[in-house]
Simulated assay, not measured.
Amino acid sequence: MRKTYLYQTKINKTTEANCNQWLEICRTLYNLALEQRISIYKQHGKSISLYQQMSQLPELKQSFPEFKTVGSQCLQDVLQRLDKAFKGFYQRLKERHSKAGFPRFKSKNRYDSFTLKQSGWRLEGRCLYIKNVGRFKLFLSRPIEGDIKTVTIRRTSTGKWFIAFSCDNVPVKKLSDTPAEIGIDVGIKSFCLDSEANQIQNPKHLEKSLKLLRRRQRSLSRKKKGSRRRNKARILVAKAHEKVVNQRKDFLHKVANLYIKAYNTIYVEDLNIKGMIRNRYLSRSIADSSWGMFFNLLSYKAAEAGRTVVKVTPNGTSQICSGCGEKVPKSLSVRVHQCPFCKLVLDRDHNASLNILRLGQSLPALSTERVFA
């Protein structure tokens, strides 16, 4: 299986300057390649391909010597990113999305990573050496396993540097076998409530940080564009957002690990989260809960541990009685399920999680569209 290891790194000023120079060269190449595709399409009615643009890299290096300082595979990866952006655009057009999102030119603060493949780098213990860039001291929180295929250097909006190793043939770490199965219903008031009535409260990290964010964003809006004070205020806003993101990821990782260690099969709802976020009253709370990220964490952790995560259709899971199967309509504001047929009374989310478990167990076969592991 493929796995990505992410580490924070410490670099000196020379290495940081070289990294920023590489990012600027990669950004320039991205914009030039995008402009070339647009101009050729306007002239001839069809665009240039990825491999045609790659074949022009040697000529580009002869005309502009600064491109010679960047590894050839790194420059090829820039063109591959652009090609991937166009493929996504055409796919969204095919699916008739309202906003297909044409690939955009990258400004100075919108290109923050470059990728190396088989050559141009060397890993020795806790240090990574990159040709024409410098040395990176890694904070190895866990050992790197498998065969390293790509190395990505990324700069955050707060000025921190991270290195991501994408590895193949990572050994699967299977946990002890257990027949236990569980259904999970996610929510806003409580993050989730499972079929065994275990409830995990929603920490609402963004809501707790809104006061600080508002104050810092008001300060940023008053600063003159292009000034040093505005840049300092921008970094303070970015740090506040970064803290919320880190708190949220830490919480989601812990919850996902809790379920992966205890249960062999986990049933979750196949939610249309993009559609749910359009609700202007609940959009911020839904985004802060990050159900999509939670499901993705469950999926890759299940694959690594030999567990199974199954999606089930969410239609009616809150309205159907888990005791007798009769439909009991209720609005979102009603938080207690009271069945007039079998007299069952329990929490609305608990009732939904029992229905999710029942639906998952009733599936005749686990298709690849429903299974994450």
Rank of each mutant, 00 (worst) to 15 (best):
K223E: 07
K224H: 06
G226C: 06
G226T: 08
S227T: 03
R228P: 00
R228V: 14
R230M: 04
N231T: 14
N231V: 14
A233T: 03
R234L: 11
R234F: 06
I235S: 00
I235E: 07
L236V: 13
L236C: 14
V237W: 07
V237R: 08
K239V: 08
A240T: 13
V244A: 07
N246P: 13
N246Y: 09
R248F: 01
K249S: 11
K249G: 08
K249A: 09
D250G: 08
D250I: 01
L252C: 06
H253F: 14
K254Q: 12
K254W: 09
V255D: 08
N257C: 15
L258T: 12
Y259R: 05
I260K: 07
N264H: 14
T265S: 11
T265D: 02
T265L: 04
I266T: 04
Y267D: 10
V268P: 00
V268Y: 09
E269R: 02
E269Y: 00
D270N: 13
D270T: 06
N272S: 12
I273C: 04
I273S: 00
I273A: 06
I273Y: 03
K274L: 14
G275Q: 10
R278H: 13
R278S: 12
N279K: 12
R280S: 10
Y281L: 09
L282F: 03
L282N: 07
L282V: 05
L282H: 01
